Simulated assay, not measured.
Amino acid sequence: MKKVLIWLAPLLIAASFSCKKSDGNNGVGGTGKGTGSIYFHDTNEGIFKMDVRTGKKTQVLPYDVSRYYWDVSRDGKKILETSDPDDPNNRNYDLYKIRDANSGAVLSSFKWYSGYANATRPIFSPDGAMIAITAPYNGKIFIVDTQGNALYNIYATSGSFTGNLQWMPDNTLLFTINKTLYRSNTTFSDFRRIASFNNFNMISQLAANNAGTSLVFMGAMPGDDNAHLWMINADGSGLKQITQGNETEGAPAFSPDGALLAFGSDLIQSVGVPWTIGGSGQGIALGSSVWGISIMPADGNAYNVENNNAVFHFPQQGKRNNRVPADSDPMEWR
């Protein structure tokens, strides 16, 4: 394998080298607009998809306590998941499985040794040929093929990756180091700064539309008790707040055509597992909390989530059902 080492002082170095079940309340709360399905992890129930036209909710994968993270291919045909090692005597790898999204059958699997802590987070490239992997605490992004063969490494020489990893439609990558957003080229040998968000307390949960023209993220400004959704053009221009209200919104996911945005709202906080987003101890606890699922236009206008008829909220059954964990799991619209 050909290797290339590139110094981007002082910032970056790049090196190349089950069965299903249907929810008992299917069909409730369809939007009557939009197409496709929203994929989400329903707490202690597994991974589900919800048809946005009918509200029908179908289990894709059952709950698995060993599962860390998951992703759905852009065409909705495959699911990628990472889980605990299957060898109890060796905890130095993650077990990766690529499954058929319809049957749940395992199409392929491999073991990924990051050389650091496990619990890696993978996402498919738009063409499904590559997987970008972030690992906690090691300051690296790994890019592999679907058999687990290493293709490239990206790592920060100054600062640290703060998540927000996203593929763009041309197979370039977006990611943040501290509060600055960067974009790679297609060979991951060069990177350019897109935007800096130093005036935010935090930015998280970056999402890009399929056209690669617009980005949305969850952001909290100094003094805010709640985080809201913000939109920015892919070239770093046109930053604007697009959700308003007295609560936090997060977990954004564009519809396949980019016209709508699914997101988490109506946060229910769990007691005893705090994660404060405010810079001085002010904020809300997100750990082990859950969102409701809502949909709004992705037109760049600001919407009050609580009292605007253009914002649709899927009905909830109880305090947990049809809700998305607010700590780490995404929503995806395919």
Rank of each mutant, 00 (worst) to 15 (best):
A285M: 04
G292W: 07
N309E: 13
V311N: 02
L286A: 10
D266P: 02
I295Q: 09
S289F: 06
S237E: 04
Q269G: 01
W275L: 09
A262L: 00
D299I: 03
D266L: 07
R320W: 15
E306L: 14
D266E: 14
S289V: 06
G236N: 13
D299L: 01
P274A: 06
G272T: 06
F312C: 08
D257Q: 02
T276L: 07
D266W: 07
A302N: 13
G318I: 03
Q241D: 10
T276G: 03
F312G: 06
V324P: 03
L261S: 03
V273I: 06
L229D: 06
T248V: 10
I293C: 05
S280Y: 06
Q269W: 06
W275P: 00
T276R: 11
Q241P: 11
I277Q: 01
N307T: 12
G287E: 12
Q282W: 09
L239F: 11
N307S: 15
P297Y: 13
W291S: 00
G281M: 04
N309F: 10
G245Q: 05
N307E: 15
L229M: 05
M231P: 04
I242V: 14
G250A: 05
L260M: 05
F254V: 09
N322H: 14
A227D: 03
Q317C: 03
S294M: 11
E247H: 01
F263P: 00
G283K: 02
A310H: 10
G272W: 09
N301P: 01
H228P: 09
G250N: 08
D235P: 01
I293F: 05
G278T: 09
T248M: 03
Q269I: 06
I268N: 01
A285D: 15
Q317Y: 15
G292V: 03
N322F: 13
G318R: 05
V273R: 13
G264C: 00
D299N: 06
A227E: 08
T248Q: 04
H228D: 15
N246P: 02
W230A: 07
G318Y: 12
Q317P: 01
S265A: 12
S265C: 04
G318T: 12
G279R: 10
N308D: 15
A310Y: 08
G250H: 04
N246A: 14
G250E: 01
A298N: 09
D266F: 03
W291R: 02
W275V: 08
L260I: 01
W230I: 10
S237V: 05
A227I: 07
W230E: 11
S288A: 08
V311S: 07
R323H: 13
G258Q: 03
A298G: 12
S288P: 00
S265T: 02
A302E: 15
M231L: 13
N301Q: 11
D235N: 15
G278C: 05
P274R: 00
N246M: 05
S288Y: 08
G250F: 05
R320A: 13
G245M: 02
K319D: 14
K240Q: 12
S270Q: 12
I232T: 08
A234Y: 02
N321Y: 14
R320N: 14
N301W: 01
T248S: 06
S294Q: 04
H228K: 13
L286D: 05
Y303E: 12
L239I: 11
I293G: 04
S289M: 04
